[in-house]
């Protein structure tokens, strides 16, 4: 899992009242969100109707990041806080460190799909505390000067256990659920136990358990799913392997020609003012900002608003895919990447 600055874990440990956890859960929401644009970009960088197998892996992971973001927001609401989702500070200025990241750590950008991106960025984001060595090419490495996001979540769990009342104080009407998520995964958080179980979902989906690459539902954790893409082999049950799984399943084909040549970390200012391309990028930014506005409403007392945001997500996707096949003016051989810039007003 992502290495983060120890000060955040310490802040959780030192918390004395629920209010002290609010900014830390806000950080968690921001972190979960910050992984979504890079994953979505890779997902939508493929030419239409190609690389279905790879897309379905990334899709499954990005959907779970959305789930994690929702869970973190539900917990913050359950504790009595208010998620802040629609403001410029919520959005990372890619390429950048992820929220809570350490100063010399991983830099995450907005780039087209490549196996190197998966290995150098996505697997780094999702790396467990002690990765299981399911392939010969990866070694466990523990660096004591860092804490991990897993430890951060565990600390929050412990702190909630320690200081929260059995019935959490937040307004139950602010809890968000959706028909698009299994109600065992996204459920209203009313009690301490609900919160603790929900955090387990985040941790396990991200990194598996300490003895297996799958979580308690038998689902392969993100790190190992990304590793499938890098090794281009499915992870399958293998009784002969040390942890019961090995990358000995069917090959996952990949043809680099199926990826659109998106310019990395495209920014709106790179496109000529007044050009049709610039307008498309502005439309993308507007949709993205508007999506965050809609999610802000959703997690601030209008849980049914989630349904309205689905259409914006859809538009965002289509705009991204159209951009991905639009030549980048002045950058020979490149197409335009999604920009993920927050616009204050429509």
């Amino acid at each position: 899992m992502l290495k983060i600055s120890p000060k955040f874990v310490n802040a959780v440990i030192n918390a004395e009242k629920l209010e002290d956890l609010f900014p830390l859960l806000q950080n968690a929401i921001e972190l979960e969100h910050a992984t979504i644009p890079p994953y979505l970009t890779a997902l939508f960088s493929f030419k239409p109707n190609t690389e279905t197998a790879i897309r379905s892996v990334i899709h499954s992971i990005v959907i779970e990041e959305m789930l994690h973001m929702s869970i973190a927001a539900n917990i913050l609401n359950a504790l009595g806080g208010e998620p802040h989702i629609s403001n410029p500070n919520f959005v990372p200025d890619y390429p950048t460190h992820l929220p809570m990241g350490i100063s010399k750590g991983l830099i995450v950008g907005i780039e087209k799909y490549s196996p190197d991106l998966v290995k150098n960025v996505f697997m780094e984001i999702e790396e467990p505390e002690d990765p299981l060595d399911l392939s010969k090419s990866f070694k466990a490495n523990a660096l004591p000067t860092f804490r991990t996001i897993g430890e951060f979540y565990q600390a929050i769990q412990q702190k909630i256990e320690e200081i929260a009342p059995e019935i959490l104080p937040g307004d139950p009407k602010r809890q968000v659920t959706s028909n698009f998520f299994d109600s065992n995964l996204l459920y209203p958080i009313h009690t301490k136990e609900d919160a603790i179980n929900a955090i387990n979902i985040i941790i396990e989906q991200g990194e598996g358990t300490s003895t297996s690459p799958v979580d308690e539902e038998g689902e392969i954790a993100h790190y190992y799913r990304f590793q499938e893409l890098y090794l281009r082999k499915k992870l399958v049950i293998d009784p002969n392997a040390p942890h019961g799984y090995s990358y000995s399943g069917p090959a996952i084909p990949f043809d680099a020609n199926n990826v659109q040549p998106m310019f990395p970390n495209t920014k709106s200012h790179m496109l000529p003012e007044g050009s049709e391309e610039r307008r498309q990028v502005d439309i993308f930014n507007n949709s993205y900002s508007d999506l965050l506005n809609g999610l802000h409403r959703t997690f601030n007392g209008e849980p049914d608003y989630i349904n309205n945001t689905i259409g914006v997500m859809f538009d965002l996707r289509l705009t991204c895919q159209k951009l991905a096949e639009t030549p980048f003016p002045g950058k020979e051989g490149y197409t335009i990447g999604p920009t993920y810039e927050f616009i204050t007003t429509a």
């Binding site: 809609g294 999610l295 309205n308 259409g311 429509a346």
Partner: peptide, 10 residues
């Protein structure tokens, strides 16, 4: 002031 469409929806 700004005239615009919906917030957070199409």
């Amino acid at each position: 002031q700004i005239v615009c469409g919906a917030e957070g929806r199409n």
